[in-house]
Design a protein around this nucleic acid. Structure first.
Lengths: 147, 147
DNA sequence: CTCGGTGCAAATGCTTTGCAATGTC
DNA sequence: GACATTGCAAAGCATTTGCACCGAG
């Protein structure tokens, strides 16, 4: 994960918007996101930062995550729960999710054919896609083995 | 929409669980769901019922919607917002959604090929699918025509 | 120096819960 | 009659907001 490039993406985005300022908090949140693995929620990210001695408020974490989503550095999902989940999107291919209802595990997968069908449906309906998310809920292999 | 059949499905489900009782409220919520068109949230359903003079509490609406989801009469979605959205699932084919970020319109579509790919991915990962939801966010034809 | 951003705590809005009353089995 | 279910209002939670202070441009 190229931290430099991610910082540059954010910097460029902020500048392109004219009124957005490059604050240390924003870069601190970005760094925490880059260091994260898999999916996480705002709360978890906040505590990880606090624990490391980085001073931020929850409000800033939420605001910044939305900002990072706007410039494509972070993806935001909402599965079945009442919590939004995020993951770093930097340099990652588009992918979809198998979500285990037993253990909560999330398995990712990529499929070109799926993307293609998606595009076909969209052009058929004159719909301009921006992002997409396929969520399959069920039971993962580990959990179906259990009695 | 066959009201009788839906009632029977619920009755059978309640009996199958042993301890679940067939209360008039549960059937009232089911009726309100059957009369609904497209997607709705718990709040809207609640007010529709109250307006019609049906006595229910919000808590019961929420509980019953979850129950109806468990027995497959209702589908529950969570798109980008912070509200859960429901729709009747009785006698409807599996379908997916194009969601317009401008006007909030939801366009449904069905695709056999998509289902097939989904199944292939699942068996590849030894994952037993239960339900799924593909959400494509973007701009609908009406909104892209606007200046 | 200006105005956008931050932190805090309080507010919001959806959903769940605790408990007495109610109605099913 | 036993006990699941209801209704109400209050509690919970994730997220947002209002406002005084701070700091980037």
């Amino acid at each position: 994960m190229d931290v430099e490039a991610a910082h540059e993406t954010l910097t460029r985005y902020l500048r392109s918007k004219g009124k957005l300022r490059a604050t240390s908090e924003r870069f601190a949140v970005l760094d925490a996101v880059l260091q994260s693995q898999g999916h996480f929620d705002a709360e978890a990210l906040y505590y990880r930062m606090i624990t490391k001695g980085i001073k931020v408020s929850k409000a800033t974490v939420y605001n910044t995550l939305d900002l990072l989503q706007d410039c494509g550095l972070v993806s935001k999902y909402r599965f079945a729960e009442n919590t939004s989940r995020y993951e770093k999107a930097f340099g990652r291919p588009r992918h979809h999710h198998l979500i285990c209802l037993e253990c909560g595990d999330i398995i990712e997968f990529v499929s070109d054919r799926l993307e293609k069908i998606q595009d076909e449906v969209c052009s058929e309906k004159n719909f301009s896609p921006q992002s997409s998310s396929l969520q399959v809920f069920g039971t993962c292999s580990k959990c179906s083995k259990k009695p």
